[in-house]
Design a binder for these strands. Structure first.
Lengths: 195, 195
DNA sequence: TTTGTGAATATTCAACAAAATATTCATTAT
DNA sequence: ATAATGAATATTTTGTTGAATATTCACAAA
């Protein structure tokens, strides 16, 4: 890793910690710079703007998230149906836990969804790709009978909106969300299944 | 209809027109009163607050909407599957048309969803009831094989979030939304079907 | 040339006053 | 008693101004 790339990573980590603790709006470029013993001006040699730093943080988080879910998809001893259910439940839980334990992070999500739609889109793509992989495995094992794997993956993902978007959190308890998610996945799987 | 009930309706209609044309925030109690040749103070003999007027408008709209969809559910010459598809597509189209032709109405929706959750909940209930009725018909005709009609209806409704909520409108074109809706309904129906 | 800075400038935020508007109420009209 | 109002009060919005912060830049150090 180049020296400058190294420093970029340090900035991302430092900023992310502040964003977590105090929120995006309440952390200043000067504070991030101070943490790193540099001037605020110098941050601009690595990032074009504060929003760009936020975007980089978001991308890093999403990367970790996808890695985690990838491991689930690569599990050897689960059926495709079980994997799909776990993927969705894991998602529901993650959304809730984060809202509960890291409430300030929502500020970051707001900024990124508003100002950097590409990043959200790429997150959607990754998630669909994971679902598609599960469907493919299901086809291969004879468990599913899915014609177009990518279209079905996108369709399934579109049906998960209620569980993905933080604004709906106040509507139900986590338990209710999990219950709804289970019912939905059960219904979807019936529709995917080979007969 | 009592005299005072009559007047309530007039107020609702007048206010709704202003809300449509200028938005909730930009219409004042004084203006509504002027339209009706009365004083603002007098409005309070019929409604406890401006929000209450907005709520009444919303309920009236929702009532019309449910009536319209009810007719679809009562159609004689459509299969349950066709009805479900039409219900969802009609919903997608309605959401888009309204956003396009009556953009100010979203302000009203915001207020009501934020300050009068019961109203939104009752809308959800009505919509689920319509879906449940379609499922029941499908069971009776042998087209579907649904165990718990109400739970399935709620599950289906939960999967329609992307198509119900205006915030997602900027993400895709109406055509894309309709395409996604068709795919989703097709998948759901496969899951509901008797085999 | 690359890394960095302090100071200058541009933008955004926050606090507060003024104006607009919602809501209440004492009183009048019917 | 019921319907209605104008004026009084309470709340919300708007506009403004100073302070905080983001961003740029000319220049210095390595």
């Amino acid at each position: 890793m180049s020296k400058s790339e190294q420093k970029r990573q340090e900035i991302i980590e430092t900023a992310e910690q502040r964003f977590r603790d105090y929120g995006y709006n309440k952390t200043t470029m000067a504070e991030i710079a101070d943490d790193l013993k540099m001037s605020a001006a110098n941050l601009y040699r690595f990032f074009k703007s504060k929003q760009d730093i936020a975007a980089a943080c978001a991308e890093r988080c999403m990367g970790e998230r996808v890695d985690c879910l990838s491991r689930l998809v690569d599990e050897k001893h689960m059926t495709a149906g079980e994997k799909l259910l776990e993927l969705v439940l894991e998602d529901v839980r993650y959304t809730h836990e984060r809202a509960k334990n890291e409430p300030k992070v929502n500020e970051l999500i707001d900024i990124v969804t508003r100002e950097r739609k590409e990043i959200v889109l790429s997150k959607v793509e990754s998630q669909c790709a994971l679902i598609a992989e599960i469907l493919k495995q299901g086809n291969e094992s004879g468990e599913f009978d899915v014609d177009d794997v990518m279209i079905s993956a996108r369709t399934i993902y579109s049906s998960l909106t209620l569980f993905e978007v933080p604004i709906f959190l106040p509507l139900f308890t986590q338990q209710q969300f999990e219950e709804m998610a289970k019912n939905l996945v059960a219904l979807l799987i019936k529709g995917l299944r080979k007969r």
